[in-house]
Every structure is written in structure tokens, then in C-alpha cells.
Amino acid sequence: MVVLNRIYTRTGDKGETALSDGQRVPKHSLRVEAYGTVDELNATLGLARLHASGDLAAQIAVIQNDLFDLGADLSRPQMDRDADAPYPVLRIIESQVQRLETEIDAMNAGLSPLRSFILPGGSALSAHLHLCRTVARRAERAAVALAAHEDANPAALKYLNRLSDWLFVAGRVANDMGAQDILWVPGASR
């Protein structure tokens, strides 16, 4: 259980922060960049959720919880030492990735195929979901950069990749099942 009785600690005043295993690292480290961008993604999803209702709102709520799991995962290095931790280590698992795939398939089944790229917009929810999609892509790039230099959970990388796809399809669903999608017209302003 997390207990936050003090919000500021002054321990990061010199540009370092603690990972979930207690190790102190610079705030500009690849690991901090990765889980910090996931935190930013969660904040943008919170804004999107303000415009959502029904199934999309419920699915976004689950994803926001997943993103805290993902942040916990990315903030703990040395996956090979998970068994030695004094508490259960939280990692993204394959079933979370599969849930996103199932939801993507279900949402996509009701959409017409695209014949053009779409521009973010249409409805407020769709515009917010497309913003979330771009932040998810940036979080994925940060996690991939981390994985190139340090250990990172492969399921976490897959989750971020599927999530950006989920957000794209959800953005179309939020646009009246694609009816309000704004199609890109190449060279339209020439």
C-alpha cells in the first residue's frame, strides 16, 4: 500500500530521484524519461476521459490503471532480480497486451476501412485521444531507447505499441464510428 503523507521530500533538489528499488539516478536518465512520459500519457488520458462515456470511459479507466502499473514496471530495473525483492514486483503481463488487442478488434469491426489518413479532430474526445496517441508513441520511443541500453520488460514495450493503436481506433469510434473523421487531402492548400 502506498502512503503519501508528505508530498515534498527535498531529496530531488540536486537533480536525482529514487527508482522503485531505492537506487538513485539522475532525473535525465533514460529510465526516468520513459516512466515520466508514461505519467504524462496518463495525464492526457485523464483529460480525454472527461469527454468519454460508456464503454470508452470504462476502458480508459482500466488503461489509466495499467499506466500506473507500467510506470512501476519501468521504474524498477534488474528484472532478473525480481524474485529477490522484499515485495511483489509489478510488471506488465501479456494478458494486458492481449486485452488491448481484443478491444481494438472489437472497436475496429464496426468501422469502415480508411482510404486516407485522418487529421486529429472531429469531436473533442477524438482530438484528445489523438493527442494521447502521440504521447503514447513518444513514451514508446523512450521505452525503446531505455531497452537499447538497460533491461526493460518486453511486454511493457508491446503494451505501449498496442496502446497507440488502441487510441487511434478509439479516436475513430469517438468520431461517431468514423463518420466525423476528418480526412487528409494531400496538397489541398497548394
Rank of each mutant, 00 (worst) to 15 (best):
A83Y: 06
A85N: 01
A85R: 05
Y87F: 15
P88A: 15
V89F: 11
L90N: 06
E94H: 14
E94F: 14
S95K: 13
Q96A: 15
Q96D: 05
L100W: 04
L100Y: 07
E101N: 12
E101C: 09
I104C: 04
I104A: 06
D105K: 05
D105I: 11
D105L: 07
A106Y: 06
A106V: 09
M107V: 01
N108F: 13
G110V: 14
P113G: 03
L114D: 06
L114E: 09
R115G: 12
S116R: 14
S116M: 03
F117C: 02
I118S: 02
L119P: 03
L119K: 06
P120N: 13
G121C: 06
A124T: 11
A124I: 08
H130F: 12
H130V: 11
L131P: 04
C132I: 02
C132E: 01
V135Q: 05
R138I: 08
A139L: 10
A142H: 15
V144C: 02
A145Q: 07
A145D: 05
A148V: 03
H149W: 09
E150Q: 14
P154Y: 13
A155H: 13
A156L: 04
L157C: 13
K158N: 09
L160A: 00
L160M: 00
L160T: 00
L163W: 11
L163A: 07
S164C: 08
F168V: 03
F168D: 04
F168M: 02
V169T: 15
R172W: 11
V173P: 00
A174K: 05
D176K: 13
D176M: 07
G178A: 12
G178I: 09
A179M: 11
A179L: 12
A179K: 14
A179T: 10
D181Q: 02
I182D: 03
I182G: 07
L183N: 06
W184P: 03
W184A: 12
P186A: 13
